[in-house]
Design a protein around this nucleic acid. Structure first.
Lengths: 194, 194
DNA sequence: AAAAATATTGTACCAAGGTACTAGACCCCC
DNA sequence: GGGGGTCTAGTACCTTGGTACAATATTTTT
């Protein structure tokens, strides 16, 4: 296995466990090898690596590939996910794609990502629409501006009403949506995750 | 063209312009036909339809298919995007897929969506990491909780420090990230759009 | 060892956000 | 015509968020 890896990346170095976090690798390509039973740690590993090495790109090598794990990996910011026992040829191709700024996807993952893609865009968008639907037109305007981070004073100025009226609308909005404050509102209306 | 549509959806009804918004169609399948030059209105139409008919699924039929428009459609919550001149057979297949809860994607759109998928997960995730990178470990903890919508009092309780200390960390965070308040912070850390 | 972050907390103060209670003007529908 | 929803707004009041000006202890860096 290691032989194939080294054939695909002759100049690469191998680190074990968290030793990698202390390595001096700058903006490189990181191949993260995960075992079948360590899904949870894989997740923290990808984010961990990316927060340490902001410029790096992380590829996940899985002993037992699993689409759920793959999707999770991509959501954590991985640039690729493939079988750990892939041949050197495949690995070289993966490497080429990723280094060119692309993302490597196996066929099964691709199919799965399309489904996830829907829950990530379509569903959450309609969820936001359903939320806005509960409000009156004027309340919608106020809600959207508040969710953008505008102060009451600014909203009042933009809508050409007094600050008091903005507060009145917001109070109505909070009650209708059963939330406490404008921050909760911002979270509801800016959540593009599904 | 209309012949193929009606062959694929024998029980369907045709509405023109905004008349559809007043129709009584409940949780149905909506085929939205757009002309080449009306991209802007297509966008508002999809969201408009979805906010009116929360339970419905919207399919976009384009006279001149364009990947940019397709991506935009999906981001607005569309369940499909295909050529308006597709044969009845293709349309039937599209309909089947969508009614089974799926999303219909043409080959070109698929390729394009993968790229968008990356900018939607990978890039923005690393951007968030880059933001958190500017903070100290303790500040990170506070920032994440504040971005979730927790009050100072709650954050203090969870981290077992006084409210004053929470405020101190937040002030430092705001200055470092050059933002005004916790709402801006929430917007930065919850932005999954890229 | 000295300097620089980091983490903690106090008192005080001001601004902004939010609520309570109220009320007039307008529009639509039965 | 009256009831209901919407949009507007006033006064008053309380809570929360954020800053100013400090200070002390610990850790890390130089």
């Amino acid at each position: 296995m290691l032989a194939d890896w080294q054939q695909a990346c002759p100049e690469g170095a191998v680190f074990r466990e968290s030793a990698a976090l202390n390595a001096d690798i700058g903006q490189a390509l990181i191949w993260l090898h995960v075992n079948a039973d360590s899904t949870a740690s894989m997740l923290t590993d990808v984010t961990g690596l990316l927060s340490r090495f902001t410029q790096a790109r992380v590829l996940v090598l899985a002993n037992a590939p699993d689409t759920n794990e793959a999707v999770a990996a991509f959501q954590q910011g991985a640039a690729g996910y493939c079988h750990a026992y892939s041949s050197a040829d495949v690995l070289r191709e993966v490497r080429r794609v990723v280094q060119l700024g692309g993302v490597w996807l196996g066929p099964e993952v691709l199919q799965r990502l399309i489904t996830v893609g829907r829950t990530m865009t379509g569903t959450s968008q309609t969820k936001i629409n359903a939320t806005l639907d509960q409000l009156t037109p004027r309340e919608r305007e106020v809600a959207l501006k508040a969710a953008e981070g505008l102060s009451n004073k600014l909203i009042a100025r933009e809508l050409d009403i007094t600050e008091r009226t903005v507060k009145a609308h917001l109070t109505a909005i909070f009650e209708r949506l059963a939330i406490r404050d404008r921050l909760q509102l911002a979270l509801m209306l800016n959540d593009r995750q599904g």
